[in-house]
Design a protein around this nucleic acid. Structure first.
Length: 300
DNA sequence: ATCCAGGTGCATT
DNA sequence: AATGCACATGGA
């Protein structure tokens, strides 16, 4: 009999509460369920989805398998998944040193202590989500995602609560764009999502293939070659799914607002100030963005 | 009402 | 290479 409870160690500083904050920002999120001091998620281990309960533990995170079969490889795969999702073992102290050098951001290591960049391990999910979120407000984007997930994603009911997997590319590749359109996706977004799904289903795109490319620029190019994936979406997916540390979703509405509110730029077109700031976060650009996004939730 | 939302692709200069 | 525009709808 295999263990059903795992301790996933974290490197200091790590805050499970900050993870929960991100996962529970008041949006209609359908990919996990928040309970007091814990989050439950259907984790898509290959061929064997498992329902996992995550909560804080003195050493980091405690993960408890609530439903699903435990195989010899389950623990290792689950640990790898959590690393891609929450990165509890990433050493963020070098990033905090950089924050401390920017007066307007020097409060962040204390205010957001232990916050990690929360990832989206499934590359197709990250890309589809980036398409959904283009040029609309977040509450509406979450509503669209829920409609798509509930219509095409695998669903499991545990104790009266529905848990979902993000729809597989092979399923979305066969979807009728008119159905997405009827769910208030734009006609264009319907085409984009189904088109990207087809590229996955036909084997032209995969996370492994993207990782095998020689460098960031090649990866960016491979993504922006997809119709519907512009530079913003490519950088978003590289940051959230491949956990590339150096990606900035240039032009992002939230990022620009955060830069303005911290008076780090004088206007949304102040490219010079942006580049000057970004240079100071070399190697940690993605974390800089994540923390600026975090700051948006703090009332000014 | 009006403007802005986690933008992108395509047509026109 | 730069600029303009449609896309669709919700929230403030």
């Amino acid at each position: 009999m295999s263990a059903r409870t795992f301790i996933i160690p974290a490197s200091d500083p790590f805050s499970f509460d900050e993870c929960l904050w991100f996962l529970d920002r008041g949006f209609d999120e359908c990919m996990h369920t928040i309970l007091p001091a814990r989050v439950r998620k259907l984790v898509p281990l290959p061929g064997n989805p498992v329902l996992v309960d995550f909560r804080a533990h003195p050493e980091g995170i405690m993960a408890e398998l609530l439903e699903g079969d435990v195989n010899p490889g389950t623990e290792a795969t689950l640990r790898a998944y959590v690393h891609e999702w929450l990165a509890p073992q990433q050493d963020i102290l070098p990033f905090y040193d950089k924050l401390a050098r920017i007066p307007a951001m020097a409060y962040m290591p204390e205010a957001f202590k232990g916050l990690r960049l929360i990832g989206i391990p499934d590359l197709f999910e990250a890309l589809a989500w980036s398409i959904i979120g283009q040029q609309i407000n977040l509450p509406f984007a979450y509503r669209l995602k829920r409609r798509m997930v509930e219509r095409w994603g695998e669903s499991y009911d545990f104790g009266g609560t529905a848990y979902h997997l993000f729809p597989a590319p092979s399923v979305m590749a066969q979807a009728d764009p008119a159905e997405l359109r009827a769910m208030q996706f734009t006609g264009r977004k319907s085409e984009y999502i189904i088109g990207v799904a087809k590229q996955f289903a036909e084997g032209h795109v995969s996370k492994a293939a993207l990782l095998a490319l020689p460098g960031l620029e090649a990866r960016r190019r491979a993504l922006t070659d997809l119709r519907g994936i512009g530079i913003w979406s490519a950088n978003y997916a590289l940051m959230k799914s491949l956990r590339d540390a150096t990606c900035i979703p240039h032009g992002d509405a939230g990022l620009l607002n955060a830069l303005l509110s911290h008076q780090l730029i004088s206007s949304k077109s102040d490219q010079a100030a942006m580049e000057k700031l970004y240079r100071k976060f070399k190697g940690w650009e993605s974390y800089m963005v994540a923390y600026l996004w975090r700051s948006l939730a703090v009332k000014s």
